[in-house]
Write a protein that binds this DNA or RNA. Structure first.
Lengths: 234, 234
DNA sequence: GTATCGACCTGATTA
DNA sequence: CTAATCAGGTCGATA
């Protein structure tokens, strides 16, 4: 990977390339390490046509999924609701789950809205970051293909709303007062009202970002019922 | 339909045309009715391009589906796993279900592998048979288009692995000791192992080939729950 | 009717 | 070679 050296415009509205490399460099240079702004890049993914298409899902490469968003076996059934902040402090809630049939981790619900609002296209790159601290927070951003170290430099111009990171985002702790990491169980909207005691003792433990969490009732009783020993282990 | 008279080669390796007519004739002539070899043809279908294409499914004409593979309303949601033996005793498991959107009965999972292995093309004919007895068994075969009573005589030759039935298949009771009819619920591969008591009362009844069967846990509780009144009735 | 979502599936590619 | 991955699909339910 070639280091990509950007000259940042000396304006208030900074435009970042959001490569992990430049991110780190920028963070160190402009803000220092001690400013309560340690968003750690977790991973990036160049979006495939399917990721931005009608399938309304983002496949998260397994290596990253299992490293950063581990689902324990129990939570795996219905997934989790993960909340991410974007560069404006807006919260994006994505359902995150594992598809056993394809052995893949996906963001489903909410993802298509993100693609639409950010006007993401195939080849653009999403980046996921976290800030460790009292209650971890998750962040999501994107950059246009061709920006940063991408291979394709894309002759097409004029794609306004792609992701721009600016330093203010890095201090959004105050900005987004209600934007703390939300890590919830999937709301049980489509689940049985009889679910109440079918899955007794069904509250789940999840370790995410080094934090142990309780997730209530992620699995319906009957789904729990019929799992085979062949289920994947995380 | 013109009766198609075949002269069988007087060799050990019989080549059958698998038309129902010749099947019956052959069975009676060569083996008699009492040889524990009463495979009854149920139906045939000339394969459409879609049946052998990327859709990975076989549409079963409704009249045959409802006659031979009735799905009760409950089983309709997830379908069934039907197992068929081919002429070699190999078991082919196909998911069988009803698609409300197209109002059609289909074999889905497993079908594409069958098409591939048998190298079936559009115009080739699949034939489904059953043997009644202690535990019904299902059989599947195929023949090339142009063989038997087919309309298209197909100028193209040289398609080796198409289906050939030979009399040995008819006595495969011993041959395929492990090849009894498997009539299972869809394996719940992706589901939980803690299955034990959560989904009580979830076993399903299915009448198939005049045999009433219990199919455990075809439907998860939440699926049952969300079934709409619009489900098809059989 | 349309869009989204959840679950399931498969083939091509690759480790 | 086999096994794992994942891009690109399906249907059906829901909103």
């Amino acid at each position: 990977m070639p280091a990509n050296h950007f000259v940042y415009p000396t304006q208030q509205a900074w435009i970042w390339d959001t490569t992990m490399e430049s991110y780190h460099r920028h963070q160190s240079q402009q803000l220092g390490e001690g400013m309560n702004c340690e968003k750690e890049p977790m991973f990036e993914k160049p979006l495939t046509p399917s990721d931005v298409g009608k399938l309304n899902r983002l496949v998260i490469p397994k290596q990253y999924a299992e490293k950063y968003f581990p689902l324990d076996a129990e939570a795996g059934e219905k997934g989790l609701l993960l909340s991410f902040e974007d560069e404006n402090g807006k919260i994006w809630r994505f359902r995150y789950s594992y598809w056993t049939s394809s052995q893949s981790y996906v963001l489903t619900k909410g993802w298509s809205r993100f693609v639409k609002e950010k006007q993401l296209d195939a080849g653009d790159v999403v980046i996921f970051l976290r800030r460790r601290g009292n209650g971890d927070r998750l962040f999501v951003g994107s950059r246009r293909r061709g920006s940063g170290q991408d291979s394709i430099t894309a002759g097409s111009a004029a794609q306004p709303p792609a992701m721009h990171w600016n330093p203010a985002f890095c201090q959004s702790t105050s900005l987004a007062s209600s934007s703390y990491l939300y890590l919830n169980s999937i709301p049980q909207e489509e689940q049985s009202s009889e679910a109440t005691e079918a899955g007794t003792g069904n509250s789940k433990k999840l370790r995410l970002f080094g934090v142990n969490l309780e997730c209530g009732h992620l699995i319906t009783g009957s789904q729990v019922m019929s799992r085979k020993a062949s289920g994947h282990q995380l």
